Simulated scan of single mutants.
Amino acid sequence: MQTETILIIGASSDIGRAVVSKLASANPNRQFILHYYKNDDVINHIEQELSHDTVLLTVQADLRSDQETDQLLASIPFDIDTIVFAQGQSYSGLITDTSDQVMDDLYHVHVKSMTRIAKHFLPSMNRNQHGTIVVISSIWGEIGVSNEVWYSMMKSAQHQFVKSLAKEVGPSNIRVNGVAPGLIATKMNQHLSDEEVEDWLQDVPLQRMGQPEEVADAVQFLCSSQSSYFNGQLLRLNGGIN
């Protein structure tokens, strides 16, 4: 079986780490390039957990910076079969209180860097007539939320990226799909109070938060042959919220 090279953007997040673990356990013929921003200790743990030579490369880069995104791309000498975008930066605040710098940061992390990374690797995917891109977005990109207007806008942009790029590169046998999670039990959501979590769960038919491993299950499905006719789709992973 041919080795598959997978680039994980945001591998040190709770969801990113779960995705690496799931993809590695599902197929031993996968090798990984792991991008991260701050949590090098998590990356070290991932490398220790995986079998020898499973991690080809680890790359630190702040995706808010065009220069560091350039350095990320320049540091990867391999053709990529699959890209999983698991990066993210949370922000909560009224739109009237949202600074231009925060707007720029969220745009670069969620939209511009993602587009530039995909653009960089798509030519080799086109030549190989094969490729998979999975974007982990958010329920807010679909339904929106007060106090997170700009964040919701960036997630909505990711949804349109998935739908539009899927149509553009589908003829080259490149599939582009996404996962739109609801509230997931991650460090990014630890700022929520117990009351805020309870208010949210009242609208969730399953009456609980999702787990990073459940997001990873959805990503594994979209990276596998079981989803070979899925293209331009966003899987709702939210416990039943309509």
Rank of each mutant, 00 (worst) to 15 (best):
E195G: 15
H45M: 08
G10V: 10
W150D: 00
L201H: 11
D105V: 04
A157F: 09
T132E: 10
G239Y: 11
L237D: 02
Y151W: 09
G16Y: 05
M114P: 05
M188P: 00
S228P: 00
A26V: 01
G240D: 15
V84E: 00
L234G: 03
G131S: 08
A118G: 09
D70K: 14
Q158V: 07
N44Q: 11
L57M: 15
V145C: 13
F121V: 04
Q207W: 03
D203K: 13
V197Q: 13
S21Q: 09
V19A: 02
V84I: 14
L56W: 06
Q60A: 11
E196F: 11
S228T: 08
K155A: 12
Q89P: 00
S75G: 08
G131D: 06
V42D: 01
G93Q: 15
M153K: 12
S224W: 05
N44S: 10
S65W: 03
D79W: 02
P77I: 03
L23W: 01
D70Y: 12
L234V: 07
Q211K: 11
S227N: 07
K167I: 08
K167C: 07
M1D: 06
K155H: 13
Q67H: 13
G232N: 06
G16S: 11
G182P: 06
E168F: 07
K112T: 15
S25I: 02
S138W: 07
T54W: 02
V162S: 12
I241R: 12
K119A: 14
Q89T: 09
L57I: 09
V149S: 09
A157H: 11
H108L: 06
Q220R: 13
L122N: 04
A86P: 00
H45N: 08
I117Q: 03
V20S: 03
G240W: 15
L56F: 10
S92P: 00
I117K: 04
N147L: 15
K167R: 12
T96R: 15
R30A: 05
G170Y: 04
L165C: 05
M114H: 12
H110A: 14
D66T: 12
I15S: 00
E214Q: 10
S152V: 06
N126E: 11
A86M: 06
A218T: 07
I174E: 03
P171M: 05
D41T: 15
I184Y: 01
S92T: 13
P28F: 08
L94N: 15
L7I: 05
T69L: 10
G131H: 05
S156W: 02
L234M: 13
K163H: 10
G232L: 01
V84N: 00
Q129P: 02
M209A: 10
V102C: 08
